[in-house]
């Protein structure tokens, strides 16, 4: 991939990819390094939106829209609700202070090991990606993905679709039950 980088740079379609990729990764990294929790949520929302853009370039329009609606929209808002409902006494600067309060040593060891593990995992995945040989894709004709997806959902994937419905019902009922204030 890196060998073809220069060639790819000449291809205008790859600019989009690079843009969205940098946005996504940037969002992730900013999330990791932010001080305030709300900033973290915001940066992650940026990541979600850039992912939606990537789906668009991949010709998955419906998925892109769903991604924006749900991940960037609902989930992020949900998280902000959660943050505000579980506020500490110290507003905002939780991460740094917490890390200093409790014994930093074990925390640091934990972080270092996590970093090592994650890097190793990435290394293995990257190795696998490099070694794998993928067939050259045939150019897919653009389809109306929304219509096609809808058709698939009610025909071939009807069962998973229904199960998803049940899952969602169970999820929100369960969430209400768990979060309900006990009135005795």
């Amino acid at each position: 991939m890196l060998n073809n980088l220069i060639d790819n740079l000449k291809d205008p379609a790859s600019y989009l990819y690079m843009l969205f990729a940098i946005l996504a990764i940037g969002g992730g990294i900013v999330m990791l390094n932010s001080a305030k929790v709300v900033h973290m949520v915001a940066s992650l929302a940026v990541t979600f939106i850039s992912l939606a853009g990537l789906y668009l370039t991949l010709g998955a329009g419906f998925v892109a829209i769903v991604q924006v609606l749900i991940s960037a929209g609902a989930v992020s808002i949900l998280m902000i609700f959660g943050i505000k409902l579980t506020k500490h006494r110290h507003d905002g600067e939780d991460e740094r202070e917490e890390a200093e309060k409790v014994g930093a040593r074990s925390g640091h060891l934990h972080e270092i090991l996590a970093a090592v593990g994650v890097l190793a995992l990435f290394g293995v995945l990257y190795y696998a990606i490099r070694k794998a040989s993928f067939p050259t894709a045939p150019a897919a004709e653009p389809v109306n993905t929304i219509l096609a997806t809808g058709k698939l959902l009610v025909s071939r994937y009807a069962l998973p679709f229904e199960i998803m419905a049940v899952l969602l019902t169970a999820a929100f009922v369960g969430a209400i039950v768990i979060a309900k204030r006990e009135e005795e």
Binding site: V63, V75, L168, I178
Partner: peptide
């Protein structure tokens, strides 16, 4: 793509339940 729809759904459900637990 269909499968990714399902994944997004599951993610959302899990987020909701997770926040409820946290509360």
């Amino acid at each position: 793509q269909v499968f990714s729809l399902f994944t997004i759904t599951v993610a959302a459900a899990e987020a909701a339940v997770g926040v409820a637990l946290l509360i």
